[in-house]
């Protein structure tokens, strides 16, 4: 009877959009900047407002509610407006800045890695830079080498930056809320393949936080640990389902936060299962997956029945062709195969 109200399975896009709306209402210091985050900029007098609402519609409706002063369409000038976000953060605002695709980081890396990441440290802890940068990651839609990368590992490399990767609508909303309330620079990586997803826990309408730096046990199991991050968590959950049908109990850890990394949750799980498969869509060299592997090898070596195994793309750029791209991305099949190799 009241069933419709009880379930709140909204899409990832909806969840993020709701979080930003609530955050902007809560805190007038939050401004949003990015390319086409509203769209048809400057044409309200012609009746055009919010033509796009962001490339993935994450910022839809904000401009009507909060106005042009706080919701700013920008020219294509990432070094300029992301750098401006750093300055605005240092001077009292809490900017949420959209770096449309992570592959564009090169245009503005100086602002992120030399300023956002280092100001607090260099200035002796006396200046905070509470900027949040959001960006899209991931392969899977034939966007080729420059528009399909994951790249959170690069940012995690820099002390001073926090990096989070939601895996479903619930974690997306909660991580946005935590990020925008956080006093450090946080980068949120949104995976393309999750945008229309309605899976995972229900998304409460109220505001709630998913803590930065905490992993989540998404599925309990006892035979093997699978770690995922972002869309790879969904792949791990599918693999766990398949492994269950083969008689294996897989525990899935949704890492959620690349920096800080939740060492305890990973170690606790692996000490129990004694086996781990680490699934990551970022490039394999000097990567997040390597970090998890090193952690387990260094701190849980005595518990392991098999070496930690990574399932990642090869050391290659992302191909365009529909026949090559699926070979690049870690799939359920690859994870199941890797898990079975470890289990047997």
């Amino acid at each position: 009877m009241v069933q419709a109200q009880a379930t709140r399975q909204i899409t990832y896009i909806h969840a993020v959009n709701e979080a930003i709306h609530q955050l902007m209402e809560e805190d007038s210091k939050i401004i949003v900047m990015g390319e086409d985050i509203a769209g048809a900029a400057g044409r309200a007098d012609q009746g055009f407002v919010d033509a796009w609402g962001g490339p993935l519609r994450l910022t839809k409706g904000l401009i009507q509610k909060f106005g042009e002063e706080r919701v700013r369409d920008t020219p294509i000038s990432e070094a300029g407006f992301i750098g401006a976000g750093v300055g605005a953060a240092a001077a009292g605002l809490r900017p949420l800045v959209d770096m449309m695709y992570v592959g564009f980081y090169g245009v503005c890396a100086d602002q992120i890695t030399n300023n956002a990441a280092k100001i607090h440290y260099m200035f002796g802890g006396k200046v905070n830079v509470p900027i949040t940068i959001m960006t899209n990651i991931g392969a899977g839609v034939n966007s080729a080498a420059q528009h399909s990368e994951s790249l959170y590992s690069i940012f995690a490399h820099f002390p001073g930056l926090k990096c989070v990767v939601p895996s479903d609508p619930y974690t997306a909303k909660g991580l946005y809320i935590s990020a925008l309330r956080d006093n450090d620079p946080v980068i949120i990586f949104n995976h393309k393949m999750l945008m229309g997803l309605r899976a995972g826990p229900e998304v409460p309408e109220r505001m709630y936080e998913v803590p930065i730096g905490k992993a989540n046990v998404s599925r309990k199991g006892s035979d093997i640990t699978l770690t995922g991050v972002g869309y790879m968590t969904q792949i791990c959950l599918q693999a766990a389902e398949e492994l269950a049908s083969l008689g294996y109990s897989a525990e899935v850890i949704d890492l959620l936060s690349v920096s800080p990394m939740d060492d305890e949750t990973i170690l606790e799980s692996v000490k129990k299962t004694r086996k781990i498969v680490i699934v990551d869509e970022d490039y394999p060299r000097c990567s997040f997956a390597s970090d998890v592997s090193a952690l387990v090898a260094e701190q849980a070596f005595d518990y392991l029945d098999a070496p930690p195994t990574r399932v990642t793309p090869p050391h290659s750029s992302v191909p365009y062709s529909t026949v090559l791209e699926p070979l690049f991305i870690p799939s359920k099949e690859k994870v199941v195969a890797a898990a079975i190799a470890v289990l047997e």
């Binding site: 086409d36 769209g39 044409r43 796009w52 294509i76």
Partner: peptide, 8 residues
């Protein structure tokens, strides 16, 4: 994209 040149 949707951003007019006279704005940007």
């Amino acid at each position: 994209e949707s951003t007019p040149v006279e704005y940007a």
